[in-house]
Design a protein around this nucleic acid. Structure first.
Lengths: 200, 200
DNA sequence: ATGCTGTATATATCTAGTTAGTTACTTCTG
DNA sequence: CAGAAGTAACTAACTAGATATATACAGCAT
């Protein structure tokens, strides 16, 4: 009977590997490194547990694989051009709304791991250069160091999504509805504009 | 020999309980709920594991106890008076620098748990009222809803401490030195001032 | 001595990682 | 083109070590 019910997917190692990575991303996003369960990842992927060890190594290596895939994806999806931090904030907000897992992985990564990769360093260097350039050109305020300004704007984009549940609960109904998100988005952008504008 | 080496503390259930709670706070801050180990908590406290179950119940209940103690402490330490969000930001930044565990617990709590307590709701209500009042009085910009403004400022205070390691790494040397923290503090307050100022 | 505070030790459950296989596909050979 | 031989993808069942929780016992204080 298993032949009729459990339609088996054709054998394809790279497809299976991709499914596992996807499942791992969800699982780690939800439970973190320590809370994630290897068995659950295999189940989510509809694949056998053993294949995780074949394709990725141990649990830590799998987590690394997830992080290593996530980071460049975000960087590409959320560009920072000419130091335009307002556009950056808009883009990042949209991205995080659409991909909640990305933010959670990033946070957990910050908790569990410490060493940034070389690619990561490069991408931050690039972003800081962009900010510094815009500061020199007078398009961004220059009384705040580039790194500080960038860090502040970065966190601002997550304010609503990482707000304490208690705050959201008293803030009115369904803080995550499409309308409410749109409302917050404008608020966020107005705030970012105020922060980055060069003083008159 | 254990009698001679391990100078025994006099029996005092409430002192032991407090030690356990303290130890649990550190442990949970460091590893999260799933990553925390009951044995390590008992060790840290220099108390017996069993007492955790006697005084608090199971692991989850212990985590709740930690959270329940943490929240009011932060609220008291970081006041919001007359909707003065700049002073609030300064105070919160200082508090979080001094108590890194508080922030980590709060984040983990946001991940693992969902239901806010009634006391928590009250404290957020109070804070929002304070912001709304200041908006009406023209001391804060009113084009951003109180909840959004508060959420944004709240996250801004953590920008530096929760910044990605990669960013901090390329931002110059020792981002957590006293001098650097002072520098960021002024940057933060300047940014908050810009955000909350009513448009001219 | 009696109840509260504390300890040492057991148990039962979980879970990461393994071992030993089976199933499907590919390729070579007559 | 059959079909044997080889290989890659996959699976189920297991193990060794952790880990949360429970039990049985010991000392202190009133």
């Amino acid at each position: 009977m298993s032949e009729s019910t459990a339609q088996r997917r054709p054998r394809d190692s790279s497809a299976t590997k991709a499914l596992l990575l996807r499942a791992a991303t969800e699982e780690f996003a939800e439970y973190g490194l320590a809370g994630a369960r290897i068995d659950r990842i295999a189940d989510r992927a509809g694949a056998n547990k053993r294949l995780i060890y074949v394709y990725f190594g141990d649990k830590d290596a799998l987590f690394d694989a997830v992080v290593d895939e996530q980071a460049p994806t975000v960087v590409k999806a959320v560009p920072l051009e000419d130091g335009d931090l307002v556009a950056f904030a808009a883009s990042r907000f949209d991205y995080v709304v659409a991909n909640p897992a990305a933010r959670r992985i990033a946070i957990w990564r910050g908790f569990e791991r410490t060493e940034p990769t070389e690619a990561e360093l490069d991408s931050y260097r690039e972003r800081l250069d962009s900010v510094t350039g815009a500061q020199r050109a007078g398009r961004l305020r220059a009384d705040i160091p580039a790194a500080d300004l960038f860090a502040i704007v970065l966190r601002m984009t997550e304010s609503w999504l990482s707000a304490p549940v208690g705050l959201l609960a008293v803030a009115g109904d369904d803080p995550m509805s499409a309308d409410r998100l749109t409302e917050h988005r404008s608020a966020l952008l107005a705030a970012v504009r105020s922060v980055v504008k060069p003083p008159a």
